[in-house]
Design a protein around this nucleic acid. Structure first.
Length: 478
RNA sequence: GUCCCCAUCGUCUAGUGGUUUAGGACACCGCUCUUUCAAGGCGGAGACCCGGGUUCGAAUCCCGGUGGGGACACCA
């Protein structure tokens, strides 16, 4: 039988990092086995589900590159089928009507808590004669769970897990208003969708026992379960939308590449020997549930940064230029010119070697599209009066260069420094400060070449003419 | 409160009874390369939660403790 997995988020918030990883694992598992990966939106909680959240989840998955293989199933459109199954259970005697009121239920729970018993429905309508039913109360339907013995689940990640059936609740499957509840809907939908492998967060492990019973009562074959450990936040607690609203789009905005995110998420909870950098193709080839660990992992931005840096260095310059252009235009509040863009593209290779995120990248790229408005304190220090004077002389000399390329510029500059009996650094750093406004940049001769003869000389002359009073000397020259 | 799960460097992990002076990655600290910063190279510091067993031998198996996490709705 061909593998079918699904990702089934409830659209009550954005796609958070744990959900993203669950989706990734399901996707990888399906791809690895040549099966399909489906999406189901669990939007039956009408009060909390929003169209914005649905869109955010779809966008998040698309951004991550996790394409689903069929149009999404919307659970809210399947209510009738769920009810039908509930009535079937009722007809078969595997469910019953319950007339308990909310107040009664609350008192029941309170009592159980006090007596140290498991908090669950006490089954007061389980075997009661329907003739006793009060006619002023609309009943809900509860499933008849086994009371004795125990249930063992063979989870593909957690291994054998056993729970006493006494812990299992005669849960509501159809509410008073006739709508189904989660544990019924999931079973019916997974079954109807032909799901073979349910891979989801650890927090659903106890639900799996209830669901296993629903399958059994229905006489349906249950899928294989795999409950993966949750991702914890820095505080060590479950990372969820409630703990700080970290939707994947936030990571995108912070400048992470989807492939880096995928790789990082993969390594969070899954290992394969000493492998760290795993391309998506390789991940599809290698991924299996055996490699998934059993303990929760904490999210670590440093490592994500490291992966992101790796994938940025690897990334195509044109793609990065597109991404950076978008950001720069937003920051600068203007469209980039053709010249701006070709400088960015020409300088991208040098730039991307040094950045960890797209945010860093566009920040460090700024000087290619506009003269530095302000010097960093360290850069300002480089531009002493002496240094400025030297830059003026250097500018005169470079103006004579026959061919404006970095090799020639370098040898000219080295010559120049030697002539003054100075180390190259003594000239290069002020040069960097004047050209980029910073003490950190790609190789300075590369910068000169990308900037071009005219712009380089203009910036140098501006620096030479300014004094050491903190004036940037690089204001709008033209 | 009841039930379930987990436990190797700060973090992510490798390790499935001896091949281990416990390996790798990130972060950290040196050195190196060097026009700056990264990247790279080399080196360093850094962990098997505790206590009992089982065994000739335990990070690996068992039990207990401790710590952490999760689940206990007419939410999903």
């Amino acid at each position: 039988m061909s593998v079918v997995t699904r990702f089934a988020p409830s659209p009550t918030g954005y796609l958070h990092i744990g959900g993203a990883r669950t989706a990734l694992f399901n996707w990888l598992f399906a791809r690895h086995h040549g099966g399909s990966f489906l999406l189901r939106i669990e939007d039956t909680d009408r009060k909390r589900s929003t169209p914005e959240a649905i869109q955010a989840i779809l966008d998040g998955l698309k951004w991550l590159g996790l394409e689903w293989d069929a149009p999404p199933t919307y659970q809210s459109k399947r209510l009738e089928r769920h009810a039908e199954v509930a009535y079937q259970l009722l007809a078969d005697g595997n469910a019953y009507r319950c007339y308990a009121t909310q107040d009664e239920l609350e008192a029941m729970r309170e009592q159980a808590r006090k007596e140290g018993r498991p908090i669950k429905y006490d089954g007061r309508w389980r075997d009661r004669d329907p003739a006793e039913a009060p006619d002023d109360i609309t009943p809900c339907i509860r499933i008849r769970m086994p009371q004795d013995g125990s249930t063992t689940l063979n989870d593909r990640v957690q291994g054998e897990v056993t729970v006493d059936n006494a812990q299992l609740d005669d849960m509501v499957i159809l509410r008073q208003d006739g709508t189904p509840t989660y544990n019924l809907s999931v079973v019916v939908d997974d079954y109807d969708m032909g799901i073979t492998d349910v891979i989801r967060g650890d927090d659903h492990l106890t639900n799996a026992f209830k669901q296993a019973k629903v399958y059994a009562l229905l006489g349906w074959q249950a899928p294989a379960f795999a409950h993966i450990p949750l991702i914890h936040g820095p505080d060590g607690a479950k990372m969820s939308k409630r703990h700080g609203a970290v939707g994947v789009e936030t990571y995108r905005d912070q400048g992470y590449l989807p492939e880096a995110m995928r790789n990082y998420l993969l390594r969070l909870g899954w290992g394969h020997g000493d492998l760290e950098i795993v391309s998506t193709e390789k991940a599809i080839e290698l991924f299996d549930l055996d490699g998934v660990g059993k303990s929760a992992a904490r999210f670590d931005f440093d490592k994500l940064d490291n992966f992101n840096g790796h994938y940025m260095r690897q990334a195509d310059d044109t793609r990065l230029t597109d991404l950076v252009q978008e950001r720069l235009e937003a920051e600068l509040g203007r469209e980039l010119t053709g010249d701006d863009r070709s400088r960015l593209l020409a300088g991208m290779d040098g730039l991307k070697q040094r950045a960890k995120t797209l945010r860093d990248l566009s920040e460090s790229a700024q000087f290619y599209v506009q003269r530095p408005k302000q010097l960093t304190p360290k850069a300002d220090k480089q531009l002493s009066d002496d240094a400025r004077a030297r830059l003026g002389k250097l500018a005169e000399r470079l103006a004579e260069v026959s061919n404006w390329n970095q090799d020639l510029l370098e040898s000219e500059t080295r010559d120049f420094a030697e002539g003054l009996d100075l180390g190259l650094g003594k000239v290069a750093q002020p040069l960097r400060a004047a050209l980029t406004g910073s003490t950190v940049s790609p190789g300075i001769f590369e910068v000169m070449e990308v900037l071009g003869r005219q712009e380089t000389l203009a910036r140098l002359r501006a620096a030479a003419e300014a004094d050491d009073t903190g004036d940037t000397g690089t204001g709008d020259a033209d």
